[in-house]
Simulated scan of single mutants.
Amino acid sequence: MEKKNATRKDIALRAGTTVSVVSRALNNSGYVAKEKKERILRVAEELNYVPNPVAISLQKRRTKQVLFYCKNLDNAFNIQLYQGMMDAAADRGYMVLFNGKIAFEEIKNTLVDGILMQDQSIAKVYMDIAGRNYHLPVVSAAYSDSINISQPLPIVDIDMFKVVETALDYLWKNGHRRIALGMPYPYDSPHARTIAYKSWTHEKGVENPRDYYIGVTRQNPILKDDERLMHFREEMAESSIIVPEDFFGKGQLAAHIFVEKRLDATAILGFNDDFSLGLIKGFQELGIHVPENVSVMGIDGINSRKYISPMLSTVALFPEKQGAKCVEVLLDIIEGKKFKYVNHSGFKLIEAESVRKIHRF
């Protein structure tokens, strides 16, 4: 006669508790007192209870799986971040699952040992919605943005203030004194890159830096107080131009806005490499030569920048290394090793063809 598999009810009866408490302990969701949880896991092993789909998770107290929440699948940086996560996890016998829908309510049905976050803004939403009920360790990539999260969690941060400063100093060193900034956020945004740009232009004594800021947002990518753009806005309304969702498309639109505003900037720094590659494409569509007419600088160092002409100058953030570090910290937490709450990932200036040197006399 075939042996019947143990059920959670069997575990509850032997452990002297309820099925709901057993479920919380086995799913690692909700609070269960430490001693009670250890007793439930011990009984589960004694009964050879095997949950689906991970057959040995109870024996080792782990699923050997972690989950990466990422909402921007069209951002090459995040794909390289994920690649670094997968490689680092494989080195330690783990697998990294991927969720591109940010469906936090589904975490209760997912067998994982910990969670990786694309950035702190997503981490905040998770902690506010689900983090209080599901006590899984969380580690987030971070980019120096000031975000108030309800519970402290470890981060792997890239100092975006120094990154932006490095990019702007490089352009300044090459003779550029009027430098625009292209962003997918408005000028009053608390985003680290916007704040860094404001601080740098103030330190350099740049007049009217707001005039050189191109914020391509869904609400209004054009500055309302610029009379020279009245005709352009009317054209946009008549043709129902929609602000693209992807960074490349936003960069293309930013190039058109740059020209319509008749900016006298000799260089523009894009939000990231995808945005900056879109700038190059947009300028080329308008017959504006890069870098002869305007220089373009990026931030990221993604692989695809090598296949666009001219090759993009950028500040490389090495997403694979950042992703690997996120995994290392998370697995150290899972395996009970020492870890730091604030970890750092480096960057490096990469010179290429999209920035020209202006001779100043």
Rank of each mutant, 00 (worst) to 15 (best):
M1Y: 00
M1S: 06
E2S: 04
K4C: 06
A6Q: 07
K9A: 14
A12H: 05
A12P: 06
L13N: 08
T18I: 00
V19I: 13
V19R: 13
V22G: 02
L26R: 03
N27K: 15
Y31V: 12
K36I: 14
A44Y: 08
A44L: 12
N48E: 15
P51N: 13
S57H: 07
R62F: 04
T63S: 14
Q65L: 10
V66Y: 01
V66E: 01
L67S: 04
F68H: 07
C70M: 15
D74K: 03
I79W: 10
Q80T: 09
Y82I: 01
G84A: 14
M85K: 14
M86C: 14
D87C: 08
D87V: 14
A90L: 14
A90P: 01
R92E: 14
F98M: 14
T110K: 15
D113C: 05
I115C: 06
M117A: 01
D119T: 03
D119F: 07
Q120A: 09
I122D: 06
V125Y: 07
I129N: 12
I129C: 10
I129D: 14
S140L: 07
S140N: 06
N148V: 10
Q151I: 13
Q151P: 03
P154V: 00
F161I: 11
F161P: 06
A167R: 00
A167S: 07
D169I: 00
Y170M: 09
K173L: 13
N174F: 06
I179N: 06
Y187L: 01
S189C: 10
S189E: 13
H191M: 11
R193T: 05
R193P: 03
T194H: 01
T194E: 10
A196N: 08
A196M: 07
A196I: 03
W200I: 10
T201W: 09
T201E: 12
K204S: 10
V206C: 05
N208A: 09
P209E: 11
V216I: 14
D226N: 12
L229P: 02
H231V: 01
H231C: 03
R233E: 15
E235H: 08
M236W: 07
M236K: 00
I241L: 14
I241S: 02
P244S: 04
E245A: 09
F247V: 02
F247D: 15
G251A: 08
E260M: 02
K261S: 14
R262Y: 00
D264R: 13
D264M: 12
D264W: 09
A267H: 05
A267L: 01
L279S: 08
G282T: 04
E285Q: 15
H289V: 09
P291F: 03
E292D: 15
N293Q: 09
V294Q: 05
V296E: 04
I299K: 02
Y307T: 10
P319M: 11
E320V: 02
A324C: 12
K325N: 12
V327E: 12
V329M: 05
V329R: 04
D332S: 13
D332Q: 07
I334K: 08
G336F: 05
F339T: 04
V342R: 02
L349Y: 06
I350P: 02
R356D: 08
H359L: 15
F361Y: 13
